[in-house]
C-alpha cells in the first residue's frame, strides 16, 4: 500500500474557501482511486507547514519558493477549469 500523498490546502482564514477546496479535491481523487491526506491552513501558516506536504493548493497567493509544488486556483469555487486543475494536481502528486 502506497503512503498517502499529503496535500496542504490554504486560504486566507483557513476556514472558508480552503474547506470547499479540500472537500472537492478529496472527492475528485477518491473517484480516481487515489488516497491522499489533506490538511487545511491559513495562508500565513503555509511556510511553516510546507515541509510536511507533497503539494500545496491555495486560493490566495503564497510564496512560490517553498520547495514544494504550488497550485493556485479558484477552480473549485468557480468551476472554471476544474477538470484541468484536477489533472494538474494528479500530475504534481505523481511526479
Amino acid at each position: 500500500m502506497d503512503i498517502p500523498k499529503r496535500i496542504l490546502v490554504s486560504c486566507g482564514t483557513g476556514i472558508a474557501t480552503s474547506t470547499v477546496v479540500a472537500k472537492a479535491i478529496e472527492e475528485a481523487l477518491k473517484d480516481r482511486g487515489m488516497n491522499v491526506t489533506i490538511r487545511q491552513c491559513k495562508v500565513a501558516e503555509v511556510k511553516s507547514l510546507a515541509d510536511d506536504a507533497d503539494l500545496i493548493v491555495t486560493t490566495t497567493p503564497v510564496s512560490k519558493d517553498l520547495g514544494v509544488p504550488v497550485i493556485q486556483t479558484l477552480a473549485f469555487l468557480t468551476g472554471i477549469g476544474k477538470e484541468e486543475v484536477i489533472e494538474e494536481i494528479i500530475k504534481a502528486l505523481e511526479s
Binding site: 474547506t19 473549485f76 468557480t78 468551476g79
Partner: peptide, 22 residues
C-alpha cells in the same frame, strides 16, 4: 457575507455557495 462559526460544521453552506456560484 459569510458568518462562519466552525468551518467543518458549515461545510454544507460553503459547498452550496460554491455550487450556486458555479
Amino acid at each position: 457575507l459569510l458568518a462562519l462559526e466552525k468551518p467543518k460544521a458549515q461545510i454544507e453552506m460553503l459547498q452550496e455557495i460554491a455550487s450556486v456560484l458555479q
